[in-house]
Amino acid sequence: MTGRGRDKNRVDDLIQIIEENKGIIYKVVNSYCNDPNDQEDLVQEIMYHFLEGYERFDHQSKVTTWMYRVALNVSISFYRKSKTRKKYISPMPENIIQIKTEENEETMDREVAQLRHFIQNLDELNRAVMIMYLDGNSHEDIAEVLDLSESNVGTKIYRIKNKLKEHFKTE
């Protein structure tokens, strides 16, 4: 098969994987970024790193583990970059994501909005733990994505949930 043919297959595979797991991207992006314009930029960066890294993905770990790693790494880095960020946006076609902003906050019920607000107030690393936990990932998977021990993940989840409990007591 020619190089171009391989590339086409690779992109086809990746498109299918992203399509099946796009919820990961939406939730990670939404948790690390509030501004709709920035969300578009962040999705672009994540997509770029998916495309760029998929060739190296060895399928030894789950594809969702790989997606979480890329999405979280890019989002945390994006979150930490300040004004200089725009200079470095990778060239991507516009409109790779369409976000209907008016539907975001208004249509969210109170509990969802509260949970989202709580998660956005966690520090970057605990936020990653919580996103994965709420997505139903096992402690083992969370530990693999973050490079922590499973017991450490368990303790962190326990502490975050305690914080959450306190948070809602006071609201």
């Binding site: 939404n30 991507m92 539907e103 949970l115």
Partner: peptide, 15 residues
């Protein structure tokens, strides 16, 4: 939240 986000976002992966 995921459901809401699914409804309000659309990825154009062909791009």
């Amino acid at each position: 939240l995921e459901d809401k986000l699914e409804k309000s976002n659309r990825l154009n992966l062909e791009l």
